[in-house]
Nucleic acid binder design. Structure first.
Lengths: 241, 241
DNA sequence: CGAGAGCTTGAGTTATGTCAATTCGTGTGG
DNA sequence: CCACACGAATTGACATAACTCAAGCTCTCG
């Protein structure tokens, strides 16, 4: 069974990659993107359930998710773990842990996935002739900070139904940005993972899905979601207190 | 009353600054730090309660806290706000919001404070001849991500007493790194701010302080804290479940 | 010295967690 | 191909941690 297999067959160039509009080069002028071809020298396939990297191991690269989905989690001494993010294609995994060169989290593929490996050394190298690349990395890190602050807001000040609504809205928007339906999708994560991420138990998450369905806000069948009333979801998160 | 006053009297050079060991240059080789003098061209004094920057305003600089303390918070449409961080001297404020050039949070001085202004343009400029500066910025951003993940862990999977214990331990350690006592300190934030940050109400925070005091773990008098039994605090966060 | 903000404490409520039983769905081996 | 087994999800009943509301206290600062 494949675990962590380098992809050798296809050439991997940012300039010709279909993901360019959502991935690391997002927002960069086309003329600059064309110069990024030295950036990705390797790709990896990760089988469902397998780690992309483990907490505590050394870090010399970032990973740009091409296909599949990945979760990141941190582990306590007690063994308890907290999921800190779900990543979709085009998103960058591994931005934490650049502080001391050690991954501060563990990342696990939630389905068979493929990532582009972006070595930090190569970022430095390439940014000598593509100065905006540094800005790009800063922007992406900054976005990751802002993202986790949003989750903080959810965990710190929202009730369970608001958290789940916010979660669904967020997922919907990110899938839409990838060209998928914003109203019909399959969630790659289970109830327990959603609960862990949102600071709730799986039972609460399950009850909420049922309630949302009963109220006609969504239709849900296992991990298959159909959003029927997006306005109601927005209403939920927009009017707290 | 002073609000946002540039400091003109003193020269501001990283190479001679006392904060070097904890601030932006932390961990950089001394030879490199010596070249950072063009980095900070401006300092600001912010009066207690005044904003350093507001959510939604444009961003072209980072702020390194020299003296005082600052809180960052994000605001919901509803007006509800969530504190995302408390910053102490040597820490960098404004790392979120570099994504689209807009501050995604508001930062407010919790006491009269002074910050060094580090223009993004100057970072780019200086890093041409101090290449490690880019690494340094990445490291600091990465640290901010890891920090917020830790808070996520607290909010997502700890009970109230564990959250407060973790909060006290964290504060203690950061103060110790600044050369202050790790056991005796004044908290610059009130009960409500602590509660907001930890996803609790001020009453719960107050009760917890009382309980910790009753149990002989701390002594507390308003915002004055004396940690009597650090082991007990660590015990609390280390043994959940 | 008075007023207001911040803090503490109590009593009662409630959202969410816990424990447990049941169903559903999927993949496996006879 | 069916039946079984296992993990995932649902649902219910009950327990409880934390919230809400309210009263009183204590600093601080003008």
């Amino acid at each position: 069974m494949l675990k962590r297999v380098p992809v050798t067959s296809e050439s991997t160039h940012c300039s010709t990659c279909m993901m360019g509009s959502v991935c690391l080069p997002v927002g960069m002028p086309a003329s600059e993107v064309a110069k990024l071809d030295e950036l990705v020298k390797e790709r990896l396939r990760i089988a469902k359930g397998q780690p992309l990297f483990l907490h505590g191991t050394s870090l010399d690269a970032l990973f740009s998710l091409r296909t599949g989905s990945i979760k990141s989690q941190i582990v306590e001494a007690s063994g308890h773990h907290q999921i800190t993010g779900f990543y979709l294609p085009g998103e960058i995994v591994g931005l934490d842990g650049m502080f001391d060169g050690m991954h501060s989290s563990t990342s696990i593929a939630m389905e068979d996935s493929e990532v582009c490996v972006v070595k930090l050394d190569d970022i430095d190298e390439v940014s000598r002739y593509v100065p905006t690349l540094q800005h790009q990395v800063r922007r992406l890190m900054s976005k990751e900070i802002a993202r986790s602050h949003q989750v903080l807001l959810a965990l710190g000040s929202m009730r369970s139904e608001q958290r789940l609504a916010a979660f669904l809205i967020n997922l919907s928007q990110r899938l839409a940005a990838l060209g998928y339906s914003s109203t019909d999708f399959i969630m790659r994560m289970g109830r327990e993972e959603i609960g862990n991420y949102l600071g709730l138990t799986l039972e609460t998450v399950s009850r909420l899905f049922s309630r949302f369905a009963r109220d006609g806000v969504i239709r849900v069948n296992q991990r298959e979601i159909k959003i029927l009333d997006m306005a109601a979801l927005n209403e939920l998160v927009g009017k707290p207190c």
